[in-house]
């Protein structure tokens, strides 16, 4: 369970996040939808503990990210928008490093890595150094790395950006599987169709503010639109920055 309350963050004169509040409950997929530059990534970086908020709170399973950073982070797995793999380590070594940093080790860790390699269908690249990996291959390693400690809460920043059709489908499969396991999923996207297809709960962000949130049915009812994509456009007021 991820909770965000009255979150505010500025970079110099730019107000990136203004009073954002929402909940992402367990067992559901919560989508952050908004045009590029709406504040999705900044919100996620605040939740993850990479940035310090100006005001407001973010909690993960009840642990405030900034006052109890280590407890909060140990319950969270994050896929950042830049995958940031170590190019001179193999895929397996990249995953193993994060596993060890999270206190795993030995046979248990190796078994978990094998499991992830099978889940993400990446046996052919597992023992290659990641230099020269395609975006899709990098994404697979990065998500395996984020899931190695089986976190209850998973946050994915634009997980399908730059992926081909097959990789996108595989990624969506992983996201659905995590929901079946009862985990809390928060992911961001500027692709309306993807959000409409996957999410149980949608938070629409524009200009650093939450402009609407609710289930797909609630959003359709609120705007009086049949089609969810039309509902998004009606909420944000423009199609710009969305796909």
């Amino acid at each position: 369970m991820i909770q965000v309350t009255h979150l505010t963050k500025s970079f110099g004169p730019v107000q990136a996040v203004r009073d954002v509040s929402f909940d992402a409950p367990d067992g559901l997929i919560t989508g952050l939808l908004g045009p590029n530059g709406a504040g999705k990534s900044t919100t996620m970086r605040l939740v993850a503990g990479a940035l310090e908020p100006d005001s407001g709170q973010t909690t993960i399973d009840g642990f405030e990210t900034h006052t109890h950073r280590l407890e909060a982070q140990s319950r969270l797995g994050v896929l950042t928008d830049a995958h940031g793999l170590y190019q001179r380590l193999t895929a397996r070594e990249n995953i193993r490093y994060y596993g060890r940093l999270r206190g795993l080790g030995g046979k248990e860790l190796e078994a978990r890595i094998d499991e992830l390699i099978a889940l993400l269908d990446m046996a052919d690249i597992a023992n290659r150094q990641t230099e020269g990996f395609s975006t899709g291959e990098q994404g697979k390693v990065a998500i395996a790395r984020a899931l190695v400690h089986q976190p209850q809460n998973v946050m994915l920043d634009e997980p399908t950006a730059g992926l081909d059709v097959m990789s996108t489908r595989a990624m969506r499969g992983v996201i659905r599987k995590l929901r079946e396991d009862g985990r809390c999923l928060l992911f961001s996207s500027h692709i309306m169709q993807e959000v409409a297809m996957l999410c149980d709960n949608i938070v629409v962000i524009a200009g650093g503010r939450v402009v609407a949130q609710g289930s797909p049915d609630e959003l359709r009812a609120r705007t009086g639109q049949e089609n969810l994509e039309d509902a998004f456009v009606a909420i944000i007021g423009t199609k710009e920055g969305l796909i």
């Binding site: 970086r45 280590l70 407890e71 982070q73 950042t80 830049a82 940031g84 999270r102 990065a142 984020a146």
Partner: peptide
């Protein structure tokens, strides 16, 4: 190389 941010998200 952008590997610092994910690294620092580990509970260490």
């Amino acid at each position: 190389r952008k590997s610092l941010e994910p690294l620092l998200l580990n509970p260490v």
